[in-house]
Structures are given as structure tokens and as C-alpha cells.
Amino acid sequence: MKKLILSLFASMLLTTALFAQAQTGSGTANPADAKVKFVKETIDFGKTELNKAVTIDFEFTNISKEPVLIETARASCGCTTPKWTLEPILPGKKGKVTASYSANGVGQQNKTIWVKFKGIDQDKELHLTGTVTAGSK
């Protein structure tokens, strides 16, 4: 009886894994991963002082055989402003998403930028982390 239950459980896990892989098409975590390769998807800006702006570039390469275009990028809060390469990025060429963060809160920070590529329904997530200190007085 235990073997039967274990076999059923293993079958359910395998079916779930195969279904999840089928949902993403090629088995990649995000369809954008088949078109672009980011140098880093999470960047830690380290420490900064309160009310000092931090600017980070998320650089990527077009690894597909066709041009890619960023339609839009949006941030998880109003304190982070994304800008991006506006023209189509040709195969093998580089593009970037620049995130400017206005450090207006003390403590550990974790901001998300969602990047929408043309022809891809799922946004690509980028993360900006770091610590904001009160600074010297």
C-alpha cells in the first residue's frame, strides 16, 4: 500500500513539473530569457545616505536572431524611475534599463522593475537592493 501511495505521489509531482514546463513553452523561467540575457537581474547598490539618489544600469544582450524592443518599464514604487533603450536592439547588440532610485527611506531596500518586451506577454523582473542610512550629521 505504501508503494502505491508513493508511486501516485511521484506521478503527481512529475505531472505538475511537466505541466509547468509546458506553460512556459521552452522550459525557460521567462520567455524573455530566450531573447535577451541580462548581465545581472539583481543589483545591490550597497549603502547610500538618505535623500541621495542612486542610479543603476541593468545591461543586456540580444541573444535572438531578430531585433528586440522594450515597450515599457515600470517600477514597484514612485521612488524608482526606469529609463530604457528606446530603439530596437539588433541581434548581438546591447541595450539597458537604467533605474534611478531616490533614497527617501532608511533601512534595507528592495525595488522591482518590470520590463515589457514587444511580443512577449510576461514582464521580465529586475531587482534593485541596498541599504539606506541616515547619514552623518
Rank of each mutant, 00 (worst) to 15 (best):
K2S: 05
K3G: 04
L6G: 04
F9W: 08
F9T: 10
S11K: 02
S11Q: 04
M12N: 04
A17H: 07
T24Q: 03
S26D: 09
T28R: 03
T28V: 12
A32V: 09
D33R: 02
A34K: 14
K35T: 07
V36D: 00
V39R: 09
I43F: 09
T48W: 02
T48V: 13
E49T: 15
L50G: 09
V54A: 08
F58I: 00
T61W: 04
T61A: 04
S64Y: 13
K65R: 12
K65A: 13
V68Y: 04
I70A: 09
I70N: 05
A73C: 11
R74F: 12
C77E: 11
G78S: 11
T80A: 09
T81C: 00
P82A: 08
K83F: 13
W84S: 09
T85W: 10
E87K: 15
P88K: 05
L90N: 10
P91T: 01
K93E: 14
K93N: 12
G95M: 01
V97L: 03
V97K: 00
S100D: 01
V106M: 11
V106F: 15
G107M: 05
G107R: 04
Q108H: 14
Q108D: 14
Q109N: 06
K111Y: 14
K111I: 11
G119Q: 06
Q122C: 01
L126V: 05
L126G: 05
L128A: 03
G130L: 00
T133M: 00
A134W: 12
G135K: 04
K137L: 13
